[in-house]
Design a protein around this nucleic acid. Structure first.
Length: 573
DNA sequence: GCCGTTTTCGGCCCGACTGTTTTCAGTCG
């Protein structure tokens, strides 16, 4: 089993935590954390990079030493230094550091004074009242530790972005009613449009923060007030979601929004850039000495740092700052750029609505075209269409198209990719479709190589156009099946096929990093909703957000093209 | 451990809140 980027990142994160407990140089610790983040965000597998003889020190934050350690991990699946360190610092202490309120210093103290080595030890120590006896600890800390352990056992998952939005909306509405409050927005990973959100960071501006703070901590859905000061408070809602509120004066709004939008890595890089220019950047503004030179808007801050404005979706320290400096940032695709949807279902298979209802939905969104791509025969549970039923559907589409004026209904199907890589319908009918969407719906557990080759074989069919939900992941439910995404994309480029960014909230598949790799490889992508009702067509915004995180521009997106242009792209020679 | 149009050595983001303390260290974002 090849070592994945996630494996390497986890080893480095773990090493960083144990180093911190071991009192190592904090910047050395950060170097490992950085490396973990960089590797995690890489679209290509590091193991493959090495196989191709790439020089890993070209990667941001990876020097000679770390490159050597990565090679060691890829070669042996282990890191000798980590194992050596674990002889001195019990490995389980890293678990404890992940508990909120416990950092390296306290974990170390707990270990030294109470011989705590595991979550169980910690719980026992807390229950028997021994934690409060350590200098610097007290009854409150002891209580917090017990709470944190209980929550860890419950382990609330990250929310899908849409779920977070549903929580945020009513809360924002309430905060906006407070007198004296001007602006209330959500910042953080939510504003960066990450596929999942671990907490909500809300930013408000007000002359006087007292009222809005009070409203916040008294919000009906609050289960626990974690902390509350005059400008900042943290609560936990009943569903387990943590929400932070910061209140700043109007003159700091831009700086605060920039700061609370993150990411942390982006901010660190930005602040270092400010410092290099003799400036200081904080959530209150950009300062030269004591004078504030920017702060009212984000645009102003980036401008004063000699950078083009960086869209929130790009702020991950994945090269956006250099691109902003060189004025080479992408002009990110927008929902308005899209002219149609290339993947949806009707009640002929497992959709909930009729074809005309789906058409009306697409027309209301201002689209020029919509592909009807119902499931095919193998997917019995979804009432998949065989060639005969599909023929009838195609005739129906012809008749409907005559009534639709300039709007065009595209003939399509979501064709199952069978285990041997053949397609679930004969060429004689695929030939008559405008766009052939193909997908894997079973045999997810094939080894990486076989799964990859299964799909590439399917692409060999000259009627194959778009691979739907290419990794098969379901957020919080099912991991992506093992697949060599780079090889898949290279095969698609060679054959003139395309991949899909599936916009369903729990799919968002391809990932942001995959989108970035596709762009780098010159592979265009479709952003499709895979709608099973007309209302779901509006999920397009989620897919667009994901694509924006992957640096995609309108020119990189199939369904941002007019139908004649798209038709040309879909024609394989 | 990384990195370099101020540097190959000496830097490495910045501030709020808590709990414990009596002026601050630790943690978090």
């Amino acid at each position: 089993m090849p070592v994945s980027n996630g494996d390497i990142a986890r080893i480095f994160e773990r090493y960083a935590m144990l180093l911190e407990i071991d009192d190592a140089n904090p910047f050395r610790v950060r170097a490992y954390q950085n490396a973990a983040r960089v590797i995690q965000g890489l679209p290509k597998s590091v193991a493959d990079l090495l196989g191709e003889g790439e020089d890993l020190t070209q990667l941001e934050g990876i020097g000679k030493d770390l490159a050597g350690k990565i090679e060691e991990i890829v070669r042996t699946s282990r890191l000798g230094k980590l194992e050596a360190l674990e002889k001195r610092v019990p490995a389980a202490l890293a678990e404890l550091m992940a508990l909120p309120g416990l950092g390296a210093k306290r974990v170390k103290l707990l270990h030294e004074k109470l011989e705590v080595c595991s979550l169980e030890d910690l719980e026992r120590a807390a229950r028997t009242g021994r934690i409060r006896e350590i200098p610097g600890f007290g009854p409150k800390t002891e209580h917090k530790v017990l709470n944190a352990i209980a929550r860890r056992r419950g382990r609330e998952a990250q929310l899908q972005w849409v779920e977070a939005e549903q929580v945020a909306k009513p809360l924002l509405r309430e905060l906006r009613t407070v007198t004296g409050v001007n602006t209330v927005v959500v910042a953080g990973s939510f504003r960066r449009s990450r596929d999942t959100v671990g907490d909500l960071d809300i930013l408000a501006t007000a002359g006087d923060s007292t009222r809005v703070m009070q409203t916040f901590v008294n919000y009906e859905d609050v289960a626990e007030i974690v902390s509350s000061g005059s400008t900042r408070a943290t609560v936990r809602l009943r569903n387990g979601l943590q929400v932070d509120l910061r209140v700043v004066p109007e003159a700091s709004y831009g700086a605060a929004l920039q700061y609370f939008t993150g990411s942390k890595a982006h901010n660190i890089a930005l602040r270092a850039r400010a410092a290099k220019r003799g400036l200081k950047l904080s959530e209150y503004g950009l300062f030269k000495g004591r004078a504030r030179v920017a702060g009212r808007s984000e645009q102003e801050i980036y401008r004063k740092l000699k950078l083009a404005y960086i869209e929130p979706e790009l702020r991950e320290d994945r090269g956006e700052i250099a691109a902003a400096e060189q004025r080479t940032l992408p002009k990110l695709v927008k929902v308005d750029d899209l002219r149609g949807d290339l993947h949806c279902h009707t009640n002929a298979s497992d959709g909930r609505e009729t074809m005309p209802a789906m058409v009306r939905g697409a027309q209301e969104l201002g689209y020029e075209y919509l592909a009807i791509s119902d499931h095919t025969q193998r997917l019995r549970i979804a009432n998949g269409l065989d060639a005969k039923r599909l023929r009838l559907q195609l005739a129906k589409i012809d008749r409907l198209n005559e009534t639709l004026g300039r709007f065009r209904l595209l003939k399509s199907a979501e064709v199952d990719i069978l285990e041997d890589g053949s397609l679930d319908l004969p060429d004689e009918i695929l030939r008559d479709l405008d766009v052939v969407v193909c997908a894997v719906h079973y045999k997810f557990e094939l080894p990486r190589k076989r799964q990859t080759e299964r799909i590439i074989r399917a692409m060999d069919n000259r009627y194959f156009n778009i691979l739907a939900h290419p990794s098969g992941r379901l957020l919080g439910e099912r991991d992506a099946y093992p697949i060599d995404m780079e090889r898949l994309m290279a095969a698609a480029v060679e054959r003139g096929c395309f991949l899909e960014v599936n916009a369903q909230p729990k799919r968002l598949d391809l990932t942001d990093a995959d989108c970035r790799m596709a762009k780098d490889m010159g592979l265009k992508l479709a952003i499709s909703t895979d709608s099973h009702s007309a209302a779901q067509l509006a999920n397009m915004r989620l897919g667009v957000a994901q694509a924006r995180r992957g640096w995609l521009e309108a020119g990189d997106v199939l369904n941002a093209q007019t139908w004649p242009a798209l038709a040309k792209l879909l024609k394989r020679s």
